[in-house]
Every structure is written in C-alpha cells, then in structure tokens.
Amino acid sequence: MSHPHGPETLVDRVHRQTGINIRRCYQCGKCSAGCPMAQETTIRPHDVMRMAAQDDLEGVRQADGLWYCLTCETCSVRCPNQCDPARVLDALREIVQEDHPEDAPRPLRAFHRSFLDQVRSHGRLFEMGLIMAFKTRGGPLFADVTTAPGMLSRGKLHLAPTRIRHLEEVRRIFEACGQRED
C-alpha cells in the first residue's frame, strides 16, 4: 500500500476494510460489461474502481453506480484480477456514508434507514411497517405498492409486527456498531 509514514489514502482505507488492493484493477471493464445496472448508470463499476484507485473520493461521491449496485456479485465472480468490485463498492459506500452521509440518494437512504429501524424495533422485519416508514421518509409512491391489498388477501402481510423475545441482544448489536436511533 502507500508509504507507511504517509497519510492514509482512499486506497488504504479500502484495503483496511476489505483486504483488497484496488490498484490491482487494470481497467478491463469486465465488471461493467456484466453489470445489470450498467445501462442505467453513468459511472459504472470500472469507473468507480478507477477513481478509487486514484484516491479520488470526490469522483466516487458523484458515482450513481455506487448507489444502484444490486450486490448481485456478477462483477466479483468474473473479475479476472481478483479485485472483488462488489466488496470494494460495499466499502466505498460505507466510507462515503461515514464522511458524507447526505450523499446517498434519498429513496435509498429512506429504504435502508426504515429497514434497519424495523429490525431494531422488533428484531425482525415487519414488512407493512417498512413500507409505511419508507413512504413517510419520502420514498416514492409506487403504483404497485397499492396492490398491498392483494398481499393482504393472500395472507402475505401481517398487520402487526412479531417481536423477538431477546430484543435487547439485537439492540446491543446496533449500539455496538454505532447505529443510533433517529
């Protein structure tokens, strides 16, 4: 990695979190070739890898591809040089959220926040609660969410959450990981 006496670079941070040296990336583009979101994004996985390898955190912050990653692992399975782009993107999302929590697209932040809230409150995911919390947090109103009645009639949505017995264990995990309640 960088010189041991130098300041910690973005390459170093990713290495510390994942054990991956992103300077390995030789920009073959195979990750972007197989990425299912490549046609919907402008900054694709190999672009993100390039910017990160150049310690360009500002560039990474602009990358839409960072947030619309489906974590499908296709890039990592096919990467010829063992750069594991899926793990690198995980790490970069974490780094960006640490430094610039406002960067993540609103619906995504809303979704993940609502999801984790459900888990913290009940120990399990309460789907109805998730959808409602998501919408209150500003998630888009989708036409198909209105088919929730269809879900109900099929017995697929519970109206009340199930709470686990040892909720304090889950709470402790959240606290230890520095996840505060909103």
């Binding site: 073959c28 583009g29 070739a33 490549a38 694709r44 296709t74």
Partner: peptide
Amino acid sequence: IRGRVSRIWRDGEVLKVQGFDTLSGRPI
C-alpha cells in the same frame, strides 16, 4: 474495442456477446 467480455450465450443461430467499451464508456 478496449474492454473485456462478460458473457457469451447462444440465441438461436447467433452468439450474443456482452462486453464493455471502456474507451467510449458504453456497454456493448
């Protein structure tokens, strides 16, 4: 084209080649 191919599959008589052009930044 500068880039690697992610996948090849058969569709009837043709082969589909899914790659990426890293110089123009376009999926192919």
